[in-house]
Design a protein around this nucleic acid. Sequence first.
DNA 1: TTTGGTATTGAAATTGATTTTCATTTAGTG
DNA 2: CACTAAATGAAAATCAATTTCAATACCAAA
Lengths: 159, 159
Amino acid sequence: MREFLKTKGYKMTPQRELVFRSFFELGEHVSVDELFDRVKRIDESVGYSTVWRNLKLICEVGLAREVTVGDGVTRYDRVTRKPHGHFYCLKCKSLQEFDLNEIAGRLSKVATAEKFETESFKVEIEGVCKSCRDKENKKAKRNLSTSPKISRTKPSRQK
Amino acid sequence: MREFLKTKGYKMTPQRELVFRSFFELGEHVSVDELFDRVKRIDESVGYSTVWRNLKLICEVGLAREVTVGDGVTRYDRVTRKPHGHFYCLKCKSLQEFDLNEIAGRLSKVATAEKFETESFKVEIEGVCKSCRDKENKKAKRNLSTSPKISRTKPSRQK
DNA sequence: TTTGGTATTGAAATTGATTTTCATTTAGTG
DNA sequence: CACTAAATGAAAATCAATTTCAATACCAAA
């Protein structure tokens, strides 16, 4: 990794190594805050901007890419061999992946037909995951009469 | 429209009517700023928050939905009969639509298979549109020797 | 039509994530 | 070891999104 970065003109530092390692240890869909928390647990002295900048760097060198869902927090996905889409649960804000092989093929065709040069795909299915749906059902049974009031604004961003 | 809103417990006001009308007159992918600009041209006195709140309201009552690409600006799409995806050009930031009929069907299947209750799809193809590619090619021809330095950070948000 | 309660408005302030600044330190080259 | 560009950490700046609050306007009921 040190060598890899060197060829791109970057230096290796203990902080950078820690950030990179932590990022790859964590699963997918890592937010800056999550990564920062993890890094801090190992080295209290590392600053937020260092984590942020190195996460950006990981993207810059092509090892990760940004994922944005509609909640105002950017997450970062390790670039893996396989293209995948995301299920985004509107209740618990969790992301699950699904394979995009076949669909990516079709999207490529659409792009080509429209003379669009594809850089990447972003496919998300928004909805409610099984676990949240189960919870809802239980609640509904417990409490048949109350219909929750619809809120005019979207829930405040988490954390 | 007045009646429609009344049934949902909302009042009609001149400002609201203007915001709604302007939104539907504009094309798709409207940002708050764009809508605000347009509204202001007709009535200087309307405030930004009024535009913002009414755009939210349009979503709330199901006539529009948020679209987020990776540039930090939320856009709003009129909810139309047809599901569609977006080409997002990384150079000129433009959005073009493409039909999602067939692909939506496949995505539904994937969701069902994973026991995920679908609320909506979001399909984006990021890349470079034809017009930007043509410009790039011209530039490249004019200037064969210079290789632009890669920037470490993403371009500042527009406006 | 007047009145009263509630929703809406506009301006300004706040929030929360992201990004930059800047003074200092450090990595890696020679 | 010495030098230079890159990297760091803290704090400040940005920026879109959202909330607050006092004033105003809608509209239903009298």
